[in-house]
Each structure stands twice: as structure tokens, then as C-alpha cells.
């Protein structure tokens, strides 16, 4: 008994993919040997399949994605660890916490080197990673500094400088409100090639203009202050590039004429 053309058509894709039973496959073979229409269909299907295979239009993941995924998992573990081991940790860190409060009382900026000691790089890196995960990179997505800057009005009690650095290779992606250790700070988001930079800005009244670079979990962090505000740039960019970014911002702020 031979198959009808309709039946063959229904199974032809499976035949081309070698997904039929031996018995089915044999019936198809018999049919297309004697049916020109179905044979033509079969040839077309095979051709299509070969062409798609040959053009190899599969996209590989960009190299930095594996790192990003890895960092996300690590971050996840860290959160869990801090929950489960929370009590023990708290017992150990209580004196440090109290000390931190006392010192924190004296200097207001969360970015001030030394204020919250070793915790800050971790907080900054976490905030950076969180912003990359899921969908919370920006609250206001715009490359226009005149859109981003006013957005912060009424949301913060200070006004962060928002510079568009597109022509230097650091386009502005937008901004969002971030809470670091309980303080509302501005997060400005820039991109350099495939890398995202979070620039955290907080009010701070440091007397000394200082700068400090550090690394946390593979992320580079540069903190500095211009005497009025405190800044922290976080990214997986190379330190040299991140420092270039910082230099651009500092130049902008001071001379408005970067080199």
C-alpha cells in the first residue's frame, strides 16, 4: 500500500531530518520514486536545509558574556551566603558597624575612602552587577544630558553633573536612582565599546581632593571627589580606560576643554 501525497507531504520534513521510523522512511522513498511532485518537494526541502546549514548564521555569544554570567552567579552566592551566615557575621561585625557609624557621623559622603572601609568596593560592585542583571540599568534612558540631568531634580537633594561624552567614545545611556548603604545616590550609565560604566555620584564634603583605584571581583572601581561631590566609576573596563573616563569627566568639570 502506498502513501497518498498529502500523507507524504506531512511527513516529508521528518524524512529530511531523518526523524521517521524505518518503515515510514521506506514508504516515503517508494512514493517519491514514482511521484514527480513529491520528489520535487523533497529536493527543494533538502536544498533549503543545506543552504541554511551552509550559511552558518548562528551567532556566538560575545566573549564578555561568559564573564558577566559568571559574575552574576557569584553575586547570587554572595547574597545567599550573607543571608544564611548572616547572624554569625553580624555578631562579628557589630563592633565594626558601630565604629563605622561613629566615623560615618563625622564624614557624610558614602564614597569617602575610609568611611565605610572595605565594604564600599563591594557595595559599588554589587550595585553595578545588579544594574546589569535583569532590566534595571536605567530609570531614565537617554543619551541627552539635558534629559537625564533634570530627571534627578526632586529625586535627590543635590544635582549631579551629567556630561555627554559620546564624542570621546563614552556615550551616555541614561541614569537611575540607586541606594548605597541607605543613601540615595545618582547612577549615571555610560558605555564604552561593549562595556557598561556605572558612575555613582553622591554629595560629599571631603576636604581633600583625593583619588583611589581598587578592584573587586574583577571589576575596576575608581573613586574620587572634586571637593563638592564624590564619584565612583565602576566597570569591567580595563583600569587605564576607566581612568581615561575619569580624566575626561574631571577635565570637563574643571576646564571644559579636554585634550
Amino acid at each position: 500500500m502506498t502513501m497518498t501525497c498529502d500523507k507524504v507531504n506531512a511527513l516529508l520534513s521528518g524524512y529530511v531530518d531523518s526523524e521517521l521510523t524505518a518503515a515510514q522512511a521506506q514508504q516515503i522513498e517508494e512514493h517519491i520514486r514514482s511521484c514527480a511532485d513529491c520528489d520535487a518537494n523533497y529536493r527543494e526541502l533538502t536544498r533549503l536545509k543545506n543552504v541554511i546549514e551552509a550559511v552558518a548564521i548562528r551567532t556566538s555569544a560575545p566573549p564578555h558574556l561568559a564573564q558577566r554570567v559568571s559574575a552574576g552567579l557569584k553575586e547570587n552566592d554572595r547574597h545567599h551566603a550573607s543571608w544564611s551566615g548572616g547572624l554569625v557575621k553580624l555578631a562579628y561585625s557589630l563592633p565594626a558597624l558601630l565604629l563605622g557609624l561613629v566615623i560615618g557621623w563625622a564624614t557624610l559622603s558614602p564614597f569617602n575612602a575610609g568611611t565605610r572601609g572595605d565594604e564600599l568596593p563591594q557595595l559599588l560592585a554589587s550595585a553595578h552587577i545588579r544594574s546589569l542583571m535583569a532590566d534595571h540599568l536605567t530609570d531614565v534612558a537617554s543619551s541627552d544630558s539635558h534629559t537625564v540631568k533634570p530627571w534627578f531634580h526632586g529625586r535627590l537633594d543635590f544635582s549631579p553633573p551629567v556630561e555627554d561624552l559620546t564624542r570621546y567614545g563614552y556615550p551616555l545611556l541614561g541614569g537611575r536612582l540607586e541606594y548605597l548603604a541607605g543613601d540615595a545616590v545618582a547612577a549615571l550609565v555610560y558605555r564604552h565599546r561593549q562595556h557598561v560604566i556605572n558612575l555613582f555620584v553622591s554629595p560629599g564634603s571631603a576636604q581633600v581632593v583625593s583619588m583611589q583605584a581598587e578592584k573587586y571581583n574583577g571589576y575596576n572601581i575608581i573613586r574620587w571627589t572634586d571637593g563638592y561631590l564624590s564619584y565612583a566609576a565602576v566597570s569591567d573596563l580595563k583600569l587605564a580606560d576607566l581612568d581615561h573616563f575619569r580624566a575626561l569627566l574631571s577635565d570637563k568639570g574643571m576646564t571644559n576643554n579636554p585634550g
Binding site: T59, P62, L65, R68, M133, A134
Partner: peptide, 21 residues
């Protein structure tokens, strides 16, 4: 995973976020 995400959402940036999630 990335290839599938990219074809489904048709955007390379979203695809990265999706894969991470």
C-alpha cells in the same frame, strides 16, 4: 542560549540580559 535568545528577541543587547537572567 545566546543564539536562541537573539533570534527570539531580535536584539543583541536584550539577548545578553536574557541569557544572564
Amino acid at each position: 542560549a545566546y543564539n536562541l535568545a537573539q533570534y527570539l528577541c531580535r536584539n543583541a543587547y536584550d539577548a545578553e540580559d536574557i541569557v544572564q537572567e
